[in-house]
């Protein structure tokens, strides 16, 4: 049975049995090679579920919005890591949220595809095995999916299988160095790094798509929305936009599960993943702490070890 068929059957059964009231998954979207979240409440709706490489939002974001319902979440490693953090932060407990683990071999990158097609917008597209097939009025391209994966997929980490309550297939993420992007950025001198950061932030229009798409940005009121008094100015001032992004990154220190939803959500191509990677690596190297993997620990910056390194303190 295909993953989609298995998924639909599982979801339909969970809904019919009354085990859950809502299944959060994806369905085919309105644009070629895109999916959209599906909030299925009936077995009939659940029949539209899909899980493949075009699913590129982190669905866990909806769990904090439907917090009074018993929910099944279609989960790839991105969602699974988020669930680990949700358990740690008491946002979701196994008696309310049930995960349906679907296999993932990496997400199709819309940006990589657009670059590969050099501006041609496919009018139709589909996945066929390991091929991405897209076409316009008078052209067709058959491209290997493995050349068009999201950067976050390389070296993707899977939490222990105990996090998946129903596993429909095994994930095989592409091997690679998660920190390659970070290393590239760090090769630059401080001045160049600042200039690169400025160039990225200058493009930001403060639409907060990154924050809203982020499953770990679930604060009822974001610091950047504080208006009495104002914490961060809301104008196009570059420093204010920096303050927003830096503070958001810090709030995600040891919490970011590196799903890349923020980067994919950005409508103007601001990519600040390397900021989160920087803190992710700091958490791992300095505190042996890996967000999204070990739920037993207390949150990174809510605790300490007496022997935490402090070479930077006078």
């Amino acid at each position: 049975m295909s993953v989609n068929a298995l998924l639909r059957e599982t979801a339909a059964r969970l809904l019919a049995e009354g085990t859950v009231r809502l299944v959060v998954g994806w369905e085919k979207g309105t644009l070629p090679l895109r999916t959209t979240p599906l909030l299925a409440r009936t077995a009939e709706q659940a029949d539209r579920l899909v899980a493949d490489a075009t699913c590129d939002q982190n669905l866990a974001v909806y769990l904090t919005r439907f917090k009074d319902e018993k929910v099944a979440l279609v989960a790839r490693p991105c969602e699974a890591r988020t669930l680990v953090e949700y358990c740690r932060e008491h946002r979701a407990s196994p008696d309310r949220v049930l995960a349906i683990g679907v296999p993932c071999t990496g997400m199709l990158s819309r940006r990589a595809l657009e670059r590969r097609l050099s501006g041609r917008l496919p009018a139709a597209g589909r996945l066929e095995g390991d091929l991405v097939i897209c076409s316009g009025e008078d052209w067709e391209e058959r491209l290997p999916l493995t050349d068009l994966l999201e950067p976050v997929c390389y070296g993707c980490r899977l939490p222990g299988a105990d996090r998946y309550w129903r596993v429909l297939g095994e994930s095989r993420p592409p091997a690679g160095d998660r920190y390659a992007e970070l290393d590239r950025f760090r090769q630059m001198a401080g001045e160049e790094r600042y200039a690169a950061f400025c160039r990225a932030v200058e493009r930001c229009i403060r639409c907060y798509a990154c924050r809203q798409a982020c499953p770990m940005c679930y604060c009822p009121e974001c610091f950047s929305d504080r208006s009495a008094p104002t914490w961060v100015g809301s104008s196009d001032d570059l420093s204010d936009t920096m303050v927003f992004h830096l503070t958001r990154t810090l709030h995600l220190a040891g919490r970011c599960v590196d799903c890349g939803a923020c980067v994919r959500a950005c409508p103007v191509g601001v990519d600040l993943r390397h900021l989160h990677l920087r803190l992710g690596r700091e958490a791992e190297e300095r505190f042996a702490y890996r967000p999204g993997l070990d739920a037993a620990d207390r949150p990174l910056v809510a605790t300490f070890r007496p022997d935490d390194p402090e070479e930077f303190i006078r």
Binding site: E192, R193, L275, L300, T303, D308
Partner: peptide, 23 residues
């Protein structure tokens, strides 16, 4: 333990700011 928790936060803050070019 306020200072011990702070120690972690400041390690992160310093790493981040220097990453994006603070001297």
């Amino acid at each position: 333990a306020g200072n011990l928790v702070a120690r972690r936060k400041f390690a992160m803050l310093k790493a981040l700011l220097e990453h994006v070019g603070l001297e």
